[in-house]
Design a protein around this nucleic acid. Structure first.
Lengths: 116, 116
DNA sequence: TTCTATCGTTAGCGTACACTGACAGATGTG
DNA sequence: CACATCTGTCAGTGTACGCTAACGATAGAA
């Protein structure tokens, strides 16, 4: 997954409303109007959110007559998962290294006391 | 992890510069000035980014003399991982259900043809 | 204390974002 | 065809965000 795709996906997920939309279509395939009915904002706002989520690869659009059905797209989340996993592993590494470094300092102090 | 914590973490990660900072301190513990030296923006901007990341629980601050050392905080990413995992599992479910539904429709059409 | 180094905070500016209202396109119905 | 339904797009407005410059605070050295 490219860096720009991760950026777009994270920017899309930064909005609480877009996360609620995504949660909604993660379990059911819903039409734009049905999604909009679940919120207190205008249909226009929801439509714009759906566009952002679609461009970020986080959901899929399927046309059925005049209606447009949306559902979450697992592949769009896969890139973010690996992004978080990498960061998580790295930060665990540095945490472990710092603990060992402190233990090493303690050992040196002990040795200094022994040899002093 | 609370909903607000997830919101703050995602908002913090939405900025590309903050992600770069996080990547930097994911492998080494660095001082604020050292982090700022890695970018072309003002030290002030970096300081503000560090505050945002710290409030989001994504990094830890440790004071050593006049310097402040920062490093990534794995626990801050854990909540996001579970958030993504839930969403991922759900969207896989709905995808599978839709495939089965289409197969069911095909079966019905076949049976209709058989019985018609 | 005075000086220096390191760093955070505040005020202000420009831009991007979320939202609304009005309009336009596309698909079924009588 | 005319009409209603479902939906996306455009222009405008208020707010939040990222950045800079100036200032203030803290810790160590002379």
């Amino acid at each position: 997954m490219s860096e720009q795709a991760t950026d777009e996906a994270l920017r899309a997920l930064a909005g609480p409303r877009r996360r609620e939309i995504l949660r909604l279509v993660a379990r059911q395939e819903l039409a734009a109007g049905e999604i909009a009915a679940a919120f207190d904002v205008t249909r226009t706002a929801i439509s714009q959110h759906l566009t952002v989520l679609k461009n970020a690869g986080l959901l899929t659009e399927r046309r059925a007559g005049t209606r447009r059905l949306y559902r979450a797209r697992p592949q769009g989340l896969a890139g973010l998962r690996s992004f978080l996993d990498d960061m998580w592993a790295s930060s665990l590494d540095i945490a472990r290294q710092l603990v060992e470094a402190e233990a090493g300092v303690d050992d040196n102090e002990q040795r200094n006391r022994d040899t002093g």
